[in-house]
Write a protein that binds this DNA or RNA. Structure first.
Length: 187
DNA sequence: CTTTGGATCGTCT
DNA sequence: GACGATCCAAAGG
């Protein structure tokens, strides 16, 4: 299956690298996804879903193709693409995007960004730049306000993988994926 | 360039 | 009551 839901219905570990090169679109802003992290359910000690469904992670246990937005550190929003069969609690965190449309708007929302590369090279940065917040939690990525337009699969040789960032458990699992040499990746 | 610490509050134990 | 799937400014080399 070559449609978005088809791709997202699979395991987050398969969907994550597949999403590299796809487009994130919100209003007049758009960008190419260049860095993601896969999170799974009860078998992933670093996942919000590790303890089963709660008030916050509820969208992760719903159907794939939905946006899961969470608030952290008292001030930041982060966005995930829900994947896997419904009930699994799997998702892919969007960590970095390469802006392609609406840079002026992004700059207005992120006045602290000095270089263009600082606009969207982090999970909370890209949410701020695109104006994604809790109001978008649980919305459809197919026909909702925040959309993912599936791109062609990236060449395996262009994909890098390594440990996830910012977590304190399961730190050895290489479940972070990014496009090699892309200047918009977070690190 | 790298390292360090502050900001700030919803969520779950 | 503790702690984040983070970011940024300031200080030190």
């Amino acid at each position: 299956m070559a449609d978005l839901i088809g791709v997202l219905s699979g395991d987050s570990l398969d969907a994550a690298p597949r999403l590299l090169g796809s487009t994130l679109r919100v209003g007049s802003c758009a960008g190419v996804i260049v860095e993601v992290e896969a999170y799974r359910g009860s078998d992933d000690a670093a996942s919000h879903a590790r303890m089963g469904p709660t008030g916050r992670n509820a969208p992760m246990f719903g159907p794939p193709g939905v946006l899961y937005v969470y608030f952290t550190y008292g001030m930041h929003w982060c966005a995930n693409v829900v994947t896997g069969p419904a009930g699994q609690g799997q998702a892919v965190l969007l960590r970095a995007v390469e802006p392609t449309e609406g840079r002026m708007e992004m700059r207005a929302r992120r006045p602290k960004a000095r270089r263009d590369a600082d606009l969207t090279n982090g999970p909370a940065k890209l949410c701020a730049a695109f104006g994604i917040d809790g109001a978008h939690n649980g919305t459809s990525l197919v026909d909702g306000p925040v959309r993912v337009e599936l791109g062609l699969p990236s060449a395996p040789a262009a994909i890098r993988r390594g440990p996830r960032i910012g977590i304190s458990a399961a730190v050895d699992l290489p479940w972070r994926f990014w496009l090699a040499d892309n200047p918009f990746v977070s690190r």
